[in-house]
Design a protein around this nucleic acid. Structure first.
Length: 114
DNA sequence: TGGGTGACCATAG
DNA sequence: ACTATGGCCACCC
């Protein structure tokens, strides 16, 4: 992907999140790793706080933590929205946890060319 | 300049 | 399954 116009780190995060295919998920650490070890996974989570107010939509529901848990659900419009969006894409969620997480996990560092 | 706060992660026990 | 710890870094006082 095209990372040269790095307005700021948040925009880069949003760009990567938009590339997550439907029915697949990734985690905060994988995005941080793809964008460079200099940035930490914490900041990716912080970036998602502003995802909803972006002009171009960001499928933030496809980003979960390393265990496949929906830790960010409380930051959506309603606490159920994140799970609903995932299930609409065919992803099964049980007890705030994604089933077959290792199967549908999408790693940008592996799937995207640098 | 410094401390507190996270939608985090890895490791250890 | 759980807690604790240290690292991480942008943001906001």
């Amino acid at each position: 992907m095209n990372l040269e116009k790095h307005e700021d780190f948040f925009q880069l995060v949003y760009q990567v999140v938009r590339l997550i295919p439907k029915g697949r998920v990734t985690n905060y650490g994988a995005i941080a790793k793809y964008l460079g070890v200099a940035r930490s996974a914490r900041v990716v989570g912080w970036a998602m706080n502003g995802a909803h107010s972006q002009k171009k939509k960001v499928p933030a529901h496809r980003v979960v933590n390393r265990n496949g848990e929906l830790t960010g659900k409380h930051h959506f419009a309603t606490p159920f929205l994140m799970q609903e969006l995932l299930e609409k894409e065919g992803i099964k969620v049980e007890n705030d946890k994604i089933r077959n997480f290792d199967k549908i996990f999408w790693d940008p560092a592996q799937e995207l060319e640098l």
